[in-house]
Amino acid sequence: MSDQTITTSARRPARPRREIGEGALAALLLAPAALIFGAVLLYPMLSTLWLSFFTQKLTEPWLGTPFVGLKNYAQLVQDPRFLAALRNTLFFGVLTVGGSFLVGIPMALLAHAESRVRWVARVAMLLPWAMPPVMTGLIFAWMFNAQFGVFNDWLVRLGLSAEPVRWLSTPGLAVAALVITIVWKTSSFVALVVLGGLQGIPRELSEAAEVDGATKVQSFFRVTLPLLTPALAVAFIFRAISAVQVFDIPYVFIGQAPAQGLLETLGVYIQKTTIEFLDFGYGAALSVALFAVSLGITALYVRFVRGDES
């Protein structure tokens, strides 16, 4: 701050010219990003919002595209399939976000510790995060296979079940399988963000606590965990957003067990409404609902970051 004032006061005559140049340069540099955001994200989102006030069904083209006001939204709050999808999404969200923290935090501690296998541990941590979700869904669907799946093999070999379990076609178990798969895929992200937080905490702090007589466990809960709060909050918000929007893995699982309405999330219902039922107007209203939930969580994040600065 101070050196800026010095340069500007020392070179007062140059100041106005430079400021104009800098503003123009900034505008020039920001223009390509603004153009892409506008054309590919903002305009489509606005047109979705616009379309949500119309009826448009490609299966009934004779209806045209009449303006219907809030009718799609009125339909939405009474649509049992939407309400079920919303309930599923929130239910899976609580379980998978919670699960990813329970698994991800110990992973971060292990990846942070000095060890001879740290490199392998970090690769093992990154891999689930980087795996394509569709392929993750397929791999786990195969591992949960009712007849020849490896998970059933373990259950039977360990004597936990007398016979193979029909994971994907039994309601409660299908949900468990989906949650396990998503937790496997997403714990890595939590671990990575928490690892970032751990790297910012000086080791001396927990060591001092231990010198003062705290056990390792106590020093983790009393010293390390409170200092990790910002990292945990960031991880939580990004996980919450991705949980609300989850699509790929439930989509693959539903493909494996077609009768499962139980696994339908908001993302899947929107895709079905638009791409399969070709009901664009109603699909747009559903999309706006999902967008609103995402935006709500984002607002939480922005408030958190802002609060952090001040």
Partner: peptide, 21 residues
Amino acid sequence: VLVVVFSMFPVVSLLVPLFRI
């Protein structure tokens, strides 16, 4: 902040309008 907001756009909500474009 706007950049952060853009990072949270649900892809599935953009499906139909992007398809039309």
